Lab assay of single mutants.
Amino acid sequence: PQVPQCKALYAYDAQDTDELSFNANDIIDIIKEDPSGWWTGRLRGKQGLFPNNYVTKI
């Protein structure tokens, strides 16, 4: 099955070790969508939390 993905609308710099940094237009694999607004994703071999208001699902 296809892994859900999202595209970064803005760059995000991780504020903690469990967060994921990314650049605008990066494509992130979505591991888990949480109602809190912090999703778990994977990018370039690293997994971490990121704010879903920085991305749009594709």
Rank of each mutant, 00 (worst) to 15 (best):
P1G: 08
P1M: 13
P1C: 05
P1Q: 15
Q2A: 11
Q2R: 06
Q2G: 11
Q2N: 15
V3F: 07
Q5F: 10
Q5P: 02
Q5N: 13
Q5T: 14
C6V: 14
C6F: 03
C6W: 03
C6K: 00
K7Q: 07
K7F: 07
K7C: 13
K7S: 09
K7M: 11
A8S: 03
L9M: 08
L9F: 02
L9H: 05
L9Q: 07
L9V: 10
Y10G: 06
Y10K: 13
Y10E: 08
Y10L: 10
Y10F: 10
Y12M: 02
D13P: 05
D13N: 12
Q15C: 08
Q15A: 12
Q15P: 04
Q15V: 09
Q15D: 10
Q15S: 07
Q15T: 13
T17P: 07
T17I: 14
T17N: 05
D18A: 10
E19N: 07
E19F: 11
L20K: 01
F22Q: 01
F22Y: 03
N23Y: 10
N23E: 14
A24C: 08
A24M: 13
A24N: 03
N25K: 08
N25F: 06
D26M: 01
I27N: 08
I28V: 04
D29R: 05
D29C: 06
D29Q: 08
I30G: 02
I30K: 00
I30S: 00
I31W: 04
I31S: 03
K32R: 13
K32W: 08
K32S: 14
K32D: 08
E33Q: 15
E33T: 15
D34H: 07
P35C: 12
P35Q: 14
S36I: 02
S36W: 07
G37H: 01
G37V: 02
W39A: 05
W39P: 04
T40S: 12
R42D: 07
R42L: 10
L43T: 11
L43W: 03
L43R: 05
L43E: 03
R44H: 08
R44W: 04
R44G: 10
G45W: 03
G45V: 02
G45T: 05
K46Y: 05
K46Q: 08
K46P: 03
K46V: 13
Q47N: 04
Q47I: 08
Q47P: 06
Q47C: 08
Q47K: 14
Q47A: 08
Q47V: 15
G48D: 01
G48C: 04
G48K: 02
L49W: 10
F50L: 09
F50S: 03
P51D: 11
P51H: 07
P51R: 14
N52Q: 09
N52R: 11
T56M: 15
T56N: 12
K57G: 05
K57M: 06
K57D: 06
I58A: 07
